[in-house]
Design a protein around this nucleic acid. Structure first.
Length: 189
DNA sequence: CCGCAGATTGACT
DNA sequence: GTCAATCTGCGGG
């Protein structure tokens, strides 16, 4: 089932994406991972790409919710956001870390990443895109449809959400807009 | 184990 | 020209 809360504000979406899954179809296989770390960004936030308004690069963030906003950072890394809120307002949640849902997914990712251990393949936004083969081809992709589908999910018993400062940014660093499943082994850093 | 610098593209307060 | 929502490899202890 596709999540029903994506029209909410960025913080709510980021928080509620924890436990949801992403199913990526690639090379005849389906890789399924579960989101364990996110960050909220929106138009009112100095650290957001949408802070200074719409541009060619960020236009997906201003579109309807539930689509992929993908961007290049540091010239070498791609990162993916799930767009949030309503069309016209630039908001989304950066997917920062995930865990594999099954052994097969873990094995294929390790192979795709040249034998690197699975625990070092999904613990960072750039690594997720690389491990799942997410490229600019999927810019603006509707996450209801293959080859990249977002599915609703929830926390398991005993799991709880923790809120912290964001990571890797220089502006508005202090804002507590990072959400994690506390203690999960696949968190970044 | 740790810390640091290089990579490499595109947007533009 | 500067700097970015990062990753990786390398060198030192």
């Amino acid at each position: 089932m596709f999540p029903a809360f994506l029209n909410e504000d960025a913080e709510t979406v980021a928080r509620r994406l924890l436990g949801c899954t992403l199913a990526r179809e690639i090379d005849g296989e389906t890789l399924t991972v579960r989101i364990v770390e996110t960050e909220a960004y929106d138009q009112l936030d100095p650290a957001s790409h949408t802070f200074h308004g719409k541009s060619e690069r960020n236009r997906a963030m201003f579109g309807p919710s539930g689509h992929a906003y993908i961007y290049l950072v540091y010239g070498t890394n791609l990162c993916m956001n799930v767009t949030a809120f309503e069309e016209g307002f630039g908001a989304g949640a950066l997917i920062r870390a995930a865990e594999p849902m099954d052994m097969r997914t873990a094995e294929i990712i390790e192979e795709r990443r040249g034998g690197r251990r699975i625990k070092d393949c999904l613990n960072g936004p750039g690594k997720i895109c690389k491990s799942l083969g997410i490229t600019m081809d999927l810019y603006g992709h509707d996450l209801r449809t293959p080859p990249l589908k977002l599915e609703a999910g929830s926390l398991r018993s005993g799991e709880r959400v923790e809120t912290t400062q964001r990571i890797g940014i220089t502006k508005a660093k202090d804002r507590p807009r990072r959400f994690i499943i506390a203690g999960n082994p696949y968190l970044s850093r």
